[in-house]
Amino acid sequence: MTRKPIVVALTLGLAVLFSADSRTGFAQDSHVGDLTGTAASGKQLYRRYCIGCHGPQGDGNGENAQWIDPKPRDFTAATFKCRSTPTGTLPTDEDLDHAITRGFVTTNMPSWNPLTPQQRADLVAYIKGFSPRWTAEKPSAPINIPPETAVTLPSILHGRELFQKMECWKCHGPAGHGDGPSASTLTDSKDNPIRPYNFSTGSRFKCGETNRDLYRIFMTGVDGTPMPSFADVIQPNDAWDLVHFLRTLQGLHTQEASMWKDYAAKHGPEIKPIGPTAAGGQ
């Protein structure tokens, strides 16, 4: 009978303790689909699952960070690799949710699919509290991705011309092996060495695995890395051509790869090599 008030007082005390948070934008919510995530719930999850690498301050300096390459994301910079939004803008809540759900292949960031969608939404809300940018700015609208064009040989060939003309090979290499002339010099925005994607490994891309993801990656750029946005310089249909060509570099059994193989078998000698000596390069 006398115990009840004590329990109430304790609960209240705990509530006050957990809401005393000096970070900016603490009250920020996230909206992922129909779910609303709250930073207060996200904080508990962050301390349980994320703090080891991303650190108590969210600056990517957790106790495990020194053993990790690539380094954990620094949330205080609010610069994110995988976005649906243009380069230099904040990602949407869904973008962050997708990143947590998907994880980052070839890095130490696992997929957090085992968490519930609500838990992930709460984490998104909490992560947004680490940078004042989330209170000062709004994420811009996602880039428009038109429906994919048909996979045809002309599309692949035109995509190959773009790979030459846009000088993708300068970093990704003439055959997409990640060994272009500038590859060895690349650093990320924190001056850590970084490798361009090697298509021949055939691994998933960091920001998704579908053709739409591939389209989005080079149109939004991968912020914080040397990979720029091509949104201003590649037209939507041309972008799909480039997607179709890039799929031929992956060494997977795709429609694009078999079309290119057939063409290369018949027209091998006519195919102009990609790289500095090819026309249009210099």
Binding site: T87, K170, S189, G221, P226, F230, D232
Partner: peptide, 22 residues
């Protein structure tokens, strides 16, 4: 120039963007 550049201003206070300019 007759070559592609990517212009990458490494802003910290302002948004950091990175654009290709062939």
């Amino acid at each position: 120039d007759q070559t592609s550049h990517n212009i990458h201003p490494l802003a910290k206070v302002n948004p950091e963007w990175n654009k290709s300019q062939p």
